[in-house]
Amino acid sequence: MDLNLQELERTEFPVPAELENNIAITSLSQLYNWGRRNSMWPMLFGLACCAIEMIATASSRFDFSRFGFEVMRATPRQADLMIVSGTVTKKMVVPIVRLYNQMPEPKYVLAMGACASGGGPFKEGYNVVSGIDKYLPVDVYVPGCPPTPQALLFGMIALQRKIDGQSIANGDDVPWYGIGPAEPTPVPVLGPDIIDPRQMDMIRRQAEAAAEDMAMVGQRELPSATQLVAAKVATAETTGAASAAISDDALSFVLPTGGNPWTEAEEIREKRRLRALARKAVRASRRSAEAEEE
């Protein structure tokens, strides 16, 4: 692998021109992240349709080894990254959480495809978990059904970017260097339906309420985005106002544009737009020149 020292350099410590590509001054975090992100070993672990595209990504045409996702490890003990590639069922989520607990830290989860992100087309099914993030922390979501190999590669590069942005000094970024052993994720139980141990109290309350023939109690806190979308629709209904007016206020923070951690896509689009504009201008000038000649 060719070593690109510029990747590591930090602008606040300039290197004399004659030493460029020989010396790089960097921070510990950056060096650590650089090493880490270029040796992300995914777990050899396929769930459904997306797994086939994952294999295609690993094969010679797309070859994710180029990014250091070098070897797929069949054991969780040697893996850094879990690619949840496909529909997660209630029956399967139990082993998945166990596997996650067995992975050594630092560990990352990439939800590949619509099913792993949010249940996908099978969401309404009685045996389908609507998104692995109901049980595990997910770092990158790759939409698509299934994502093409290039879309998966994009997601993997996105994960590398995320790692780049982390700092050893920040406990939120690298919780695994805290004091004491890390908490394992509680493993769900297959009862009459799947039971998340974290929700035990809630299930008990509901069961008690049901036993006393009362209505279900308790209101779940909605995720802010959809709550706002719902509010937006509600206002639209009551006021009958035009959509433009609502999308300005309510939706501006539903779909934040400023705080987006992943701006590459936007950058690409912007570049593409500028390119197109430039071409358009060239064409226009050519056309006007031709018109003048005539």
Binding site: G118, G119, K123, E124, G125, Y126, V128, V129, S130, K134, V189, L190, G191, P192, D193, I194, I195, D196, Q199, M200, M202, I203, R204, Q206, A207, A210, A211, M216, G218, Q219, R220, L222, P223, T226, Q227, V229, A230, V233, E237
Partner: peptide
């Protein structure tokens, strides 16, 4: 009148789970 929502918002548990009313959590066994 499309009410955009995620299905989990309508469920108390936030997941697609239903439990029978006679569930006994004290003697729960897998």
């Amino acid at each position: 009148g499309g009410h955009a929502h995620r299905s989990e918002e309508k469920n108390v548990f936030g997941k697609n789970v239903t439990y029978p009313p006679d569930i006994d959590l004290n003697r729960l066994m897998d």
